[in-house]
């Protein structure tokens, strides 16, 4: 099948700006789903609010465009009630770790079998370029006109600390790696977090001397290194990409199945 078999052509053209990285994420998500041979009817794509959230309308899966920050809570209800479905959640950075931060850490703690893709463009794009918890110190934004003094989260460390059993990071420059990581993250039995640095030239780049989308991708190329590389030790400002953790731990729905089994036994005796 080709890419067109996985999208809803009726709803195109998409609303993303020229140069936006979100289309690259969409493209690679579809490639990963195709390579994994998944049935479209067995996938539920859930999203929150913002530019990133629109991704779920364009894919020909069951799709749920929810409210700001709560995508993982909706996804939790879907997954527990129908564990056989593949649940993929797409969120922006503000969506995932500002307004939705609580749901993010608790979904990770439960290790529920959901794949969370965080499309991190370090800005609130749809509302016009306000800083997010991922913007970082020194960044300019429409609500940080002098300079942002809020430090950023390290999303991978946050996910690890909260208990996620698959944590990875890549960028829209490293397209092959996006597909490779998603092909591992989606079948992973447990909560998987894939952070994808994606460019917002319109709202982030324009304010931070990277108005050209190619400049932003160049930044991803020059400022990221593979996990565990020596370059990171020499220059701590470099961003690591790759898989940080991939481990087996009891998964929430499987554990609940045991509860059901016990409760039913108690009922019979």
């Amino acid at each position: 099948m080709g890419v067109k078999d996985y999208i809803r052509e009726r709803f195109f053209p998409h609303l993303w700006c020229p140069g936006c990285g979100h289309g690259i994420v969409l493209n690679n998500l579809i490639r990963a789903v195709e390579n994994l041979g998944l049935d479209k009817s067995e996938i539920v794509m859930v999203s929150g609010i913002g530019c990133s959230a629109r991704i779920c309308g364009y894919v020909d899966f069951h799709s749920l465009h929810t409210i700001h920050g709560r995508a993982l809570a909706f996804a939790t209800g879907i997954k527990i009630s129908r564990p056989e479905l593949n649940v993929i959640v797409a969120m922006g950075d503000g969506d995932a770790v500002a307004i939705g931060g609580n749901h993010f850490i608790h979904a990770a703690r439960r290790n529920i079998d959901v794949t969370a893709i965080v499309m991190n463009n370090r800005i609130y794009g749809m509302t016009g370029g306000q800083f997010s918890p991922m913007s970082g110190y020194g960044i300019k934004a429409s609500t940080a006109p002098y300079s942002n003094i809020d430090p950023a989260f390290d999303l991978a460390k946050l996910a690890l600390g909260a208990g996620a059993t698959f944590v990875a990071r890549t960028t829209t420059y490293h397209v092959k790696q996006i597909t490779d990581i998603l092909e591992k993250a989606i079948p992973h039995k447990g909560f998987s977090v894939v952070e994808i640095l994606t460019q917002c030239p319109t709202e982030f780049g324009r304010r931070n001397n990277m108005a050209n989308p190619a400049d932003m991708m160049e930044f991803f190329k020059n400022h990221t290194v593979p996990v565990g590389s020596k370059a990171k030790k020499k220059n701590p400002d470099l961003i690591e990409r790759g898989i940080f953790v991939q481990k087996e731990m009891p998964e929430y729905c499987s554990e609940y199945d045991k509860i059901v089994e016990d409760a039913m036994k108690g009922q019979q005796s």
Binding site: V46, G77, I78, L85, N102, H103, V260, A263, M264
Partner: peptide, 30 residues
């Protein structure tokens, strides 16, 4: 769980409301 149903204590009131909406979409009474 005695009838094979699912109970979940969520992290807050908001997520409880969201979770039942998700579960309803899969065809369950919530």
């Amino acid at each position: 769980p005695r009838k094979g149903g699912k109970f979940i204590q969520m992290e807050d009131e908001i997520s409880s409301m969201c979770a039942i909406i998700g579960a309803s979409l899969t065809g369950h009474k919530v």
